Simulated assay, not measured.
Amino acid sequence: MCLILVAWQAHPDFPLVIAANRDEFFARPAAAAAWWKEQPEIFAGRDLEAGGTWLGLSRSGRFAGLTNFRDPSRQRAGTPSRGDLVASFLRSTETTAAALARLQQEGRRYNGFNLMLSDGDSLGVHESVSGVSHLLEPGLYALSNDLLDTPWPKAVAGKSRLSRALTALPDDTPLRELLRDDRPAPDESLPRTGVSLAWERMLSSAFIRAPGYGTRCSTVIRRSRHGWTHVTESTWDEVGQETDRVTETFQIARP
């Protein structure tokens, strides 16, 4: 997952709104979002190579979403799958604060990542590279492949468009449209993350098309103040055509 935009307690009727793109190699097998048969409280896509997930929800109101930290020089072989972090939080009963404290110790075992998570009452993020955890105040947030709210072009543009999209709710069309923005940033605005300039250009847009790599799915989530949660997820092929769409609506059942 390479872009997660979140509006947390920033709308009077929809306290949680999420727009997210997952970018990955097309050769890596994955399953679309669904209720997991062996863990029916979890609604998420699934990485069929390592078994974890990049973003998901639970019936009790939990949410977690993961982005990798982009720095090829930091990659280590033999580390556990970062997708397990999302699944383990979704199946747990720990608070957001407790999970952040645990990640302070456990996060260093993994290659670089950012994990945004919520127990339904609070929202937080752990940045494994900086070693910093935050409980987040109400507001708008953007998480790409660097630290929270790092002003990469896609993050800045995404937050701006998210703010405007909130005014259209419950219509989520503007949210889905912002995730399809495939315009690259100008060279002078590009970050330098250790990949080639050509790849920095291709990776700079919200929606990515690159050789063998790109935006695999786009997910929009809105949760009403009454606990109703609506999810729409589109799956994309290598040329950016939609191949599947999943929609799901459920009400939060707090323990």
Rank of each mutant, 00 (worst) to 15 (best):
R161H: 09
V132A: 10
R183A: 15
I221Q: 07
G78H: 00
S73Y: 09
E233Q: 15
W8L: 11
Q105P: 12
A185I: 00
A50K: 12
I252C: 14
H134Y: 15
S92C: 07
L85M: 02
T173I: 13
T247Y: 05
G131H: 09
S122H: 11
L140I: 12
T79K: 15
L166Q: 09
A27M: 06
S163H: 15
G212D: 09
R161Y: 03
N114D: 02
S81D: 00
A165G: 13
A142L: 01
D244Y: 02
S144R: 01
G240L: 03
P186H: 09
P72C: 02
S118C: 09
D47W: 03
L100K: 13
L85A: 01
A31V: 04
R59I: 10
G131S: 08
C2M: 10
G107E: 11
D187R: 15
E242P: 03
P151Q: 05
F250R: 00
T235F: 05
A31F: 02
A33R: 01
R91M: 02
D23V: 05
R164L: 10
S144Q: 07
R91L: 04
A168Y: 05
D182H: 13
W35F: 15
T96F: 12
P138G: 08
P184W: 03
E242T: 14
V239M: 06
V231D: 01
R176V: 12
T249S: 13
R76H: 13
W54A: 06
G212L: 08
F250Q: 10
T95D: 09
T229K: 06
G194N: 07
V246P: 01
L85K: 00
R183P: 12
R216M: 04
S218G: 05
R161E: 11
L178V: 07
I4A: 12
A155P: 04
V132M: 09
L136V: 12
L123T: 14
P40Y: 05
E127D: 15
V246D: 00
L85W: 01
P15K: 06
L85R: 00
R201V: 13
N21M: 06
V17L: 04
N68F: 00
L143D: 08
T232N: 13
T79Y: 08
N21A: 03
P151K: 03
T232E: 09
E177D: 15
R245G: 09
A99W: 02
G240A: 04
V220C: 14
D121L: 13
G212T: 11
E24A: 08
I42T: 02
R22L: 06
R192F: 01
A33F: 05
R22P: 05
A99L: 05
T243G: 10
P72D: 12
R59K: 14
T95L: 13
L166V: 12
I252F: 04
R108C: 13
A10D: 09
S196H: 10
N111F: 06
G214C: 06
V156Y: 02
F207T: 14
V17R: 04
A165E: 05
G240T: 11
S196A: 08
E248Q: 07
T235V: 14
L57P: 01
A155I: 07
G120T: 14
Q104H: 14
L190H: 01
P29M: 01
I18Q: 00
P72S: 09
P211L: 14
C217H: 05
K159P: 09
V125K: 03
A101C: 11
T215E: 10
M1F: 12
M202Y: 08
P12R: 11
E200K: 12
W36S: 07
